[in-house]
């Protein structure tokens, strides 16, 4: 498990580079080694990227498994951090989805009120006031000054 986690960045780098290499070979088609072709430079870059991936992989494996200091532990993301971050990301996706069938003003006000509520620590009346004022400012600033047509 630990080895898998340590080698993850290097592995992803190598897989991404291999996809790029494969795609550049597809572009080049018959003339594999013509530098003027569209796939030659990306191909070279893909090879460099593979080397970078291998270097990272080796470096990560070489690292001794040392006991993490308290500061490092604080730096690392915990499971609950990830949970919060991804649930919030999905919430943003829902907000963008809602823009296609709800008017901008309503969906944005709702989004702000619910997010500030979910993130905790702010009094509910401050929340409502801040949300409504922000949406109003954003709406007028962007529609008047930047001529943006809202969805």
């Amino acid at each position: 498990m630990l080895t898998l986690r340590r080698t993850l960045p290097g592995m992803v780098m190598i897989i991404v580079s291999l996809v790029i290499l494969y795609q550049s070979l597809l572009i080049q088609g018959t003339e594999q080694l013509n530098p003027a072709g569209g796939g030659f430079l990306p191909g070279i870059i893909a090879i460099v990227l593979i080397i970078c991936g291998i270097v990272t992989l080796i470096n990560d494996l070489k690292k001794q498994v040392v006991e993490k200091t308290d500061e490092q532990k604080e730096q690392a993301f915990s499971k609950s951090d990830y949970f919060l971050i991804f649930s919030y990301f999905i919430f943003i996706v829902f907000y963008v989805l809602s823009l296609s069938f709800l008017p901008f003003l309503i969906s944005t006000t709702l989004f702000l009120i619910i997010s500030i509520f979910l993130l905790k620590g702010i009094k509910w009346y401050t929340n409502v006031i801040v949300s409504i004022v922000t949406v109003t400012i954003i709406y007028f600033l962007f529609s008047q000054l930047f001529n943006i047509v809202f969805p």
Binding site: F111, L112, I116, L119, I122, V130, T134, I138, I148, P151
Partner: peptide, 20 residues
């Protein structure tokens, strides 16, 4: 400014910016 207020507002502005 509390992050709880700041982050959602930046999210809205980023969404509008990429839409615009």
């Amino acid at each position: 400014v509390p992050k709880q207020i700041l982050l959602p507002i930046i999210a809205v502005i980023t969404v509008i910016g990429s839409y615009a």
